[in-house]
Design a protein around this nucleic acid. Structure first.
Lengths: 221, 221
DNA sequence: TTTTGAGCGGAGCGCTCCGCTCCGATATGT
DNA sequence: ACATATCGGAGCGGAGCGCTCCGCTCAAAA
């Protein structure tokens, strides 16, 4: 699935592939900035592509968004796996993943949730969400086992935290990402297990996956 | 300004006053949930008020939002002053203010920024913003002087932090507030001055008031 | 009790702006 | 040079918005 490499296409075929990549990028930017109500024409404009070509590739706005969401989730999974293999220290892996998630995917960060609620949960999305959840569990469990991540923070907190960290603020995209990373640093400092002489506890029950289903479209449980 | 007490109105006049209070509350809820594009009719519906009455009181959607924003800012100023006088400990005052700001004003929290960018900066709003900024400076300066708040965190970070903390997530209003408070706890833990043996620094330059002008409509400088 | 009019609710007008389609122009392979 | 796959964007149909208009309600004056 997701074979963007069909040998080495040339001519018109190659242009179509380029268009597709540009479309995904533009869609992510535009949806990140304006939300679901962003006009499709704005996506086409920013990708430098005509409406006709866009609608030949994706027969509806919804299908375009679905594809974008799946690509985004797969990227997150890849980033998480990279962090797990390249960073031997569990805390470093955890922090690295969050930073990558915020900065790599355009200005809107992962933004899966945003559009998530309005889209039906296709099999493909559910599968991607399950994979993502599994790797988040790994990341969090590793840090817990090492005793560096506060025990009352769960893997289900991660998507919510990312959603909080990608608030849309009226500054340039670049500045917005910088500020998101700044507040991620505050949060990372707050997520270390507190010193024994200064214990703190997080208010309220942790989120559980079931209540995130709308934001997440994952299989519940 | 803001004299809701005109003796003790009776009859039709009293109903109008009640309507006004309900309108402010409904407007805050609806704008918090749906953003600026929320239909005015939804605000009227939730307030239990006809469109006619709404538009007699506020001649346009924009003026309604302006009023709501001013009321919200004044509430924040009051909460900050209360925190400063009732909590002798600077850290407690700082934390108390943030918690109050998130939980007191309906589900959307302060939400000043959200609608802020689209509204012209009237004198009244600029004045309210200036007052708010002054009291935020007090709060942060107090905690800095006591050495409990990390030095690289500034007063201008506060509105941005609040904006990040009020991310709209697809759960009930009550649950959303609970989760906001949960992540506020993480952030508060991360905002204490780090121990000398585990120093951490926040990435990137702190925001300054000028770049928040659109979100804030305060006088720059 | 009757009269009165300020204040109320909500149906609907006019308009903006969206998703999507259609088709002439353009580029590629033979 | 021809045939054809693919491109871009003007325009169509309709959804949904801000706001107005008007018949009704009901507290207060007579």
């Amino acid at each position: 699935m997701g074979d963007t490499q069909t040998g080495r296409p040339r001519g018109r075929r190659r242009e179509a592939d380029l268009n597709d990549a540009r479309l995904m990028q533009a869609a992510r930017e535009v949806f990140a900035e304006q939300g679901w109500d962003a006009p499709v024409s704005e996506i086409a404009r920013r990708a430098g592509i005509g409406m006709g070509s866009l609608y030949r590739r994706y027969p509806s706005k919804e299908l375009l968004a679905q594809r974008m969401r799946i690509v985004g989730m797969e990227q997150l999974v890849t980033q998480a796996r990279t962090a797990l293999t390249e960073e031997p220290d569990p805390w470093a892996a955890f922090a690295r993943f969050l930073r990558d998630a915020l900065s790599a995917q355009g200005p809107g960060g992962p933004l899966l949730p945003l559009v998530g609620g309005r889209l039906p949960a296709t099999d493909e999305i559910v599968a991607a969400a399950a994979q993502l959840r599994a790797v988040l569990d790994d990341l969090v469990a590793g840090a817990h086992r090492a005793g560096v991540l506060r025990a009352d923070f769960t893997a289900a907190d991660v998507p919510l935290l990312l959603e909080h960290l990608t608030a849309r603020i009226p500054v340039t995209d670049e500045r917005a990402t910088a500020l998101h990373l700044r507040y991620l640093d505050v949060i990372l400092a707050g997520l270390r297990t507190p010193a024994a002489d200064q214990p703190t506890t997080l208010q309220g029950p942790a989120p559980d996956w079931a209540e995130l289903s709308e934001l997440w479209n994952a299989p519940e449980g």
